[in-house]
């Protein structure tokens, strides 16, 4: 048994081949990302770091550039956005490309629901959102609207509130964010935001 155990430790490096094709190692130098966003970028609510796998390359790139350029996350009340802004501020263009390539290659289980809200009421409100994000919330590149399906419900809830309260989407260089802030007027309360987040979360 002891010999077996030693062998197991010795060959552990080969286990990478058995982990499944979807599991991508963290590129050297980007280990910071998984500290908060978790294994395979599955997200971690405790750190308020959302799941990233499933987001489109063009959206990831835009957001990283926005964080880097203090276009997103600079509002004093936006604590978590501010934390991410600091992380992105020294990224080079190449690093951003590497991150985007890696994130889009990762896969992780879709997050579980954490918000118990009125899905029917959320569906009614979502009709406005649907115009850009699509009926299944899969996003629309032409309109610059990201995929929302597979995001954490608490993250959608927080972002809707940030748009609603002017903590995101107010920077003059953030044209897509401004669009989103304008239409987020249909969300008038935390309750609305919870309902919409719960509705999006259960979309297949």
């Amino acid at each position: 048994m002891l010999a077996k155990r030693c062998l197991l430790l010795l060959v552990s490096g080969f286990f990478a081949f058995h982990l499944g094709a979807e599991e991508v190692p963290t590129p050297v130098g980007l280990e910071y990302c998984t500290v908060c966003h978790g294994a395979q970028l599955k997200g971690n609510e405790n750190i308020q770091a959302p799941r990233l796998s499933g987001l489109s390359d063009w959206y990831l790139e835009r957001q990283l550039l926005n964080f880097k350029g203090r276009i997103r996350g600079d509002h004093p009340d936006n604590i978590t956005g501010g934390e991410m802004m600091l992380m992105a501020r020294n990224l080079s263009d190449k690093e951003i490309k590497d991150i985007v390539a890696w994130v889009t290659a990762t896969d992780s289980p879709k997050p579980l629901a954490t918000i118990d809200a009125d899905i029917k009421a959320g569906e009614v409100l979502y009709q406005t959102c649907s115009a850009c994000h699509g009926p299944k919330a899969a996003g629309n590149k032409l309109l610059g609207a990201p995929n929302l399906s597979g995001l954490n419900d608490w993250y959608i809830f927080n972002q809707l509130n940030q748009f609603r309260l002017g903590m995101r989407g107010t920077h003059s260089s953030d044209s897509y964010g401004q669009q989103m802030r304008a239409v987020s007027g249909v969300i008038t309360s935390e309750k609305d935001a919870a309902n919409v987040a719960a509705f999006i979360h259960q979309l297949k």
Binding site: L19, T34, V35, G38, G43, N46
Partner: peptide, 27 residues
């Protein structure tokens, strides 16, 4: 993960000193 590679190890017992708020990000 160590140097961009996965390693899997087994032991009889595990004592976990990782800050608990990271555990939701660990499978």
């Amino acid at each position: 993960e160590h140097g961009g590679q996965f390693h899997t190890v087994k032991a009889d017992y595990c004592f976990n000193n990782i800050p608990a708020h990271f555990m939701a990000g660990i499978e």
